[in-house]
């Protein structure tokens, strides 16, 4: 008997309705993309939660390293001048 095949892992993204972005909802195992889509529909949209599904092989996702996150993201930490509240507008001018 052949050994039990290990089915690949897929990440599932669902667009709840048009106008919203696809959002990660979870993952599942399936032999190929077509079966992954069917399984994603059955597992993640039993109550009409989606109008569009993306499935992506988990192995295709390149993630930032959680151990490196401080160094990786700190270039943005000291750039308060990118925020609107960094700039002073005279009160008399009103909302801007």
């Amino acid at each position: 008997m052949m050994p039990e095949p290990r089915l690949p892992l897929w990440e599932v993204f669902i667009r709840p309705r048009n106008g919203l972005a696809h959002r990660h909802v979870g993952s599942l195992h399936a032999a190929d993309a077509a079966m992954a889509l069917l399984a994603a529909r059955d597992v993640y949209t039993r109550r009409g939660e989606g109008r569009s599904i993306w499935v992506v092989p988990t192995s295709a996702i390149q993630a930032s390293d959680p151990d490196d996150k401080d160094a990786f993201f700190d270039p943005a930490d000291d750039k308060v001048y990118r925020q609107p509240t960094h700039y002073r507008v005279p009160d008399d001018v009103g909302d801007m």
Binding site: M2, E4, L7, A31, D32
Partner: peptide, 16 residues
């Protein structure tokens, strides 16, 4: 269910 998993994997491998 073993034959279903085997068939799905074989089909996926053939069409990869």
């Amino acid at each position: 269910g073993a034959w279903v998993r085997e068939a799905a994997a074989a089909y996926a491998a053939k069409h990869a």
